[in-house]
Nucleic acid binder design. Structure first.
Lengths: 148, 148
DNA sequence: ATGATTATGATAATGAATTGCATTTAGTCT
DNA sequence: AGACTAAATGCAATTCATTATCATAATCAT
């Protein structure tokens, strides 16, 4: 049993929930999928792999993952929630290419420190934050420069 | 005619659109309203003030404001888009209290510089960014400490 | 003023996400 | 192992914010 499965099962037993084959299947598929997947994408992926589960269950299970601290939900402005594994993954923020939709992750401790400074100045206690940089990745800027 | 009206009219004429009493009314109400207003809130406010305009037109007009560079749309995670005046307003980011929903604006040039540095390192060209700090404002942290 | 074009309002439609409910399943207690 | 209780599932129906449709009205260049 891997770490992620353990975490989920611990959350499940602490809340008197149940381990089901659907939940296990969704977890397996989620861990094996690309980061920042949408519920719909995961649903399709599982259907293709013949480990089909209802879409409502996908949503319910992804929310369960978030409650258990395994995943986090993100909104990148395209109207669909995306889910990413955060357990045993160090914190990071995102660069989002508006052209090819590529998502690049980055870490920057200096920025985090400055955020805390801003919070302190405003007598604010930070629980979470969201930093997203939108623009063009290197590939897409090249293309734009060429087609000018 | 104020600066905001001028900007909007310039956008309108450049795109062969039309100045209507509805658009003027929405602009007036928008400028007079609290920052970070939702379409629904603006709709209610105008109804209360007997300068009623259809909800669809509110949406259309707020989008027009965004296209003209007058306003920007923001998502603070509550499922409703919020609009804020950005014309002639210096750039800032947001602290969002998860308890009382208060939104505090702040500016931090150092963070902006670091963001550019991150972008450069990733050969990424930033067009816009979003930095939101979620947590508790000073009032709400006090209440939480007391009720413990 | 005319006419072409754009805007509006009311309502229907959309799409992501959630919910209700009948049925199935998991896990516990004997 | 069997029975019981609470939770989970699938499907369809529902919700909610936002957008599209379309007939009618308003704007503005000529």
């Amino acid at each position: 049993m891997n770490k992620e499965e353990e975490l989920l099962k611990s959350h499940i037993s602490r809340h008197n929930l149940k381990v089901t084959k659907e939940r296990s299947a969704v977890l397996r598929a989620f861990l094996a999928s690309a980061r920042h997947i949408t519920a719909e994408e995961l649903y399709r992926k599982m259907k293709d792999e013949n480990s089909s589960v209802g879409l409502a269950t996908i949503y319910r299970t992804l929310n369960l993952f978030c409650e258990s601290g395994l995943a986090e939900q993100r909104q990148f402005g395209d109207g669909q929630a995306r889910y990413e594994l955060v357990y045993n993954v160090s914190h990071h923020d995102h660069l989002i290419c508006q052209e090819c939709k590529r998502i690049i992750e980055f870490q920057n401790e200096e920025i985090e420190v400055l955020q805390e400074k801003v919070a302190k100045k405003n007598h604010f206690k930070i629980f979470s934050h969201k930093l997203e940089l939108y623009g063009l990745c290197s590939d897409c800027s090249k293309v734009q420069a060429e087609t000018k």
